[in-house]
Design a protein around this nucleic acid. Structure first.
Length: 502
RNA sequence: GGCGCAUUCGUCUAGUGGUUUAGGACAUCGGCCUCUCACGCCGAAAACAGGGGUUCAAUUCCCCUAUGCGCUACCA
């Protein structure tokens, strides 16, 4: 479609924006909520600026690689609604977009740096490095590589090479001076070069480290803005140094604040950090999660809380991002999710709840016709008190099954008076006479009965609700009975009375 | 330990050198509605980390301290 458009209006089409941003996760497991939020902001920045959003898989750590993790990443992003313009499964002009398929590129880049005198081979064994670190820590010195191999003579180097000693490629970090970079949210950040290590660029297994791969790829993929979590701030001066060594212009850096656990600490598996898809499984809607995540660190500048994706895209700017880490408060997400559920059409809601009801054994196959109408009625009754899709499972159980037990609290409160059985029986007799079993007639009948007996309607409603649903709370009593139907209501009243006697 | 980043109600945040008795939302508490539970509505309580400066004036600018977080790997 874009081609057709360009063909006919070639001269009037505004030039494509230069903005290119990427999300570059590692396939080391599920996509957790913090990464998802970084992806979301990168995506928002791209979409808000008519730029290009690129997905790149950074699978250069073979030890931590988890089989199938890429698929989980794709599924997670798609669930949240973050589509990518270039990357795995969609292609693009700067591929491949999986780093393990680009090892030649990194190797050549590392070689070039050695050639130009910006990097060197290091033959130190992991054991030597570990011992060095230990010694430095014992002496309370800063642990840093001692640059042993940086000073090797040609002869020593030749000996190692001839012996086939494994090596890594290290960057020759300048020994003096300082490196400053501009962070979009924090301004200039400066690091003393002396505090930086001679970082490893190429590992002995031939794979690049993040530092090399990320710089090389961001340059080759023409990334204009690097949006990533602020845990990368201290690595950024090294990256800037690398760009300079290559003679490349660095991109703009935007370090996004991180998500904290509710108690303020780092989000970890133990403290509420769960995968994005787990939120899906716990009954959250993608639009609610999107909205919530966007408001964690960004605000529209006014009092809006519930905002659609389109709305957010239309007003999103980096300037309104906060540099401060934010605690993930699920209570508010739950509230927001409830807002979305309440506004969903019942039809839409049914499509989302049906799979859960199928799993629970409430329904089978695709429910159509009259049965579908009944399901929609049930949802109408439950909708406004639901906050998560999963609330529709236990909350709806008694619409599909007769209650097997009666809530203890309700029994104590509504069933303890000696005349309860008699009241229920009178109600049952009255309801039996109804030809039209709808909300209006039910209410008239019950209130009429209450008046005749000189008791409040509540004296009938509460015990009967417990008898019919097994619960002391729920939707309006009369509408609930209408949806349940005469036969079911009478049967359940009977059963409850038998339980009362025993 | 070193280096770096951050710091407004419990939480997410708005805000400006004087217009602020610092605004909104969630949560909390109280009330209304009501057949219960929710929803909704009304109301309450709740914050500029501390100390120095700069200034006629600082929550807003600077410095220090404290606290939190991050990095300090042949992990990303």
């Amino acid at each position: 479609m874009r081609c057709v458009f360009n063909h006919h209006f070639k001269m009037t089409v505004p030039p494509m924006s230069e903005i290119r941003v990427r999300f570059a996760p590692s396939p080391t497991g599920y996509l957790h909520i913090g990464n998802a939020r970084s992806a979301l902001f990168a995506w928002l920045f791209a979409r808000a600026n008519k730029g290009t959003f690129i997905l790149r898989i950074e699978d250069t750590d073979r030890k931590r690689y988890v089989q199938g993790a890429e698929q989980v990443i794709y599924e997670s992003l798609r669930w949240l609604g973050l589509d990518w313009d270039e990357g795995p499964e969609v292609g693009g002009d700067y591929g491949p977009y999986v780093q393990s398929q680009r090892t030649d590129i990194y190797r050549q880049a590392a070689e070039a740096l050695i050639e130009s005198g910006h990097a060197y081979r290091c033959y130190c064994t992991p054991e030597r490095l570990a011992a060095l670190r230990e010694e430095q820590q014992r002496r309370k010195e800063n642990s840093q590589y001692d640059r042993h191999c940086r000073h090797l003579t040609e002869e020593e180097r030749a000996v190692y090479e001839q012996a086939g000693k494994p090596s890594v490629v290290r960057f020759k970090t300048p020994l003096e001076g300082a490196t400053t970079f501009h962070d979009y949210l924090r301004g200039d950040v400066t690091f003393e070069n002396a505090g930086l290590d001679d970082l490893v660029l190429l590992k002995s297994d031939g794979y690049p480290t993040y530092h090399l791969a990320n710089v090389v790829d961001d340059h080759r993929m023409k990334i204009t803005h690097v949006l990533r979590a602020d845990e990368w701030i201290s690595s950024t001066p090294r990256h800037v140094l690398l760009y300079r060594a290559f003679g490349w212009e660095p991109p703009k850096f935007v370090h996004l604040p991180m998500i904290l656990s509710p108690d303020g600490g780092k989000l970890s598996k133990r403290r509420g950090a769960v995968s994005l898809l787990e939120y899906r499984d716990r009954g959250y809607l993608p639009e609610a999660v999107f909205n919530f995540l966007a408001l964690l660190g960004w605000s529209p500048g006014d009092d809006r809380e519930k905002m659609s994706v389109e709305e957010i895209v239309s007003v999103f700017t980096l300037d309104r991002m906060s540099p401060k880490g934010a605690a993930f408060d699920e209570t508010k997400l739950e509230w927001l999710n409830g807002q979305y559920i309440h506004e969903l059409s019942t039809e839409d809601l049914l499509n989302r709840v049906a799979p859960l009801w199928r799993d629970a054994g409430f329904i089978e196959g695709d429910e159509m016709g009259a049965e579908r109408d009944r399901l929609l009625s049930i949802l109408t009754l439950l909708k406004e008190r639901a906050r998560r899709l999963t609330d529709f499972v236990e909350g709806a159980r008694y619409f599909f099954e007769d209650p097997q037990e009666y809530e203890e609290k309700g029994r104590r409160k509504h069933w303890k008076k000696p005349d309860v059985g008699e009241r229920l029986n009178a109600l049952k007799d009255r309801l039996e006479t109804l030809d039209v079993f709808n909300e209006e007639h039910l209410e008239t009948a019950l209130r009429g009965l209450a008046e005749e007996r000189g008791i409040s309607a509540a004296k009938l409603i509460h015990p009967a609700r417990l008898a019919i649903s097994g619960r002391s709370f729920g939707p309006g009593f009369f509408e609930m009975m209408e949806v349940l139907g005469k036969e079911t209501v009478l049967r359940r009243l009977d059963r409850a009375m038998r339980v009362l006697i025993s």
